[in-house]
């Protein structure tokens, strides 16, 4: 359970953005989390109210998008969603692969004024 520390990082980053862009209110923060990230979306949502408590983002809602992780098969050169196929290429059966991302934990966008 290390989500809280990371969510606090998110809050700090957004507060910094508010300063840079001279924003007064943030309605929504949209996060993107890769399928292979160990940040569990549900836990991120759960600890979010604690992380924003007493900050400028107290009333901001959090949205999370899950990013599908693709792999480039080293056997046949095709791209496939790695989690859905448990790391086995559906085209040729090879397990040799290059992951094309997967551990993303991004602030995609904020909706603010």
């Amino acid at each position: 359970m290390h989500e809280l520390g990371v969510v606090i990082e998110v809050i700090k980053t957004v507060e910094q953005l508010m300063k840079e862009h001279q924003l007064t209110e943030v309605a929504t923060i949209v996060l993107q989390i890769g399928e292979l990230s160990s940040m569990i979306p549900r836990f991120v949502q759960d600890c979010y109210p604690a992380a924003v408590d007493g900050t400028l983002l107290e009333k901001t809602t959090l949205e999370i998008e899950i990013l599908t992780t693709n792999a480039l098969c080293q056997g046949c050169g095709k791209v496939y969603p790695v989690v859905a196929h448990q790391g086995v290429c559906p085209h040729c059966g090879s397990t040799r692969r290059e992951l094309l991302g997967g551990r993303e934990f991004l602030i995609k966008e904020i909706i603010a004024c």
């Binding site: 990371v6 990082e9 998110v10 980053t13 953005l17 862009h21 924003l23 007064t24 209110e25 309605a27 551990r103 993303e104 934990f105 991004l106 602030i107 995609k108 966008e109 904020i110 909706i111 603010a112 004024c113």
Partner: peptide, 17 residues
Amino acid sequence: MNDFRILTIKASVFADN
């Protein structure tokens, strides 16, 4: 009514680390 807009950030929270 405040004029909300979308700011695209695409910042990795792990980027610093």
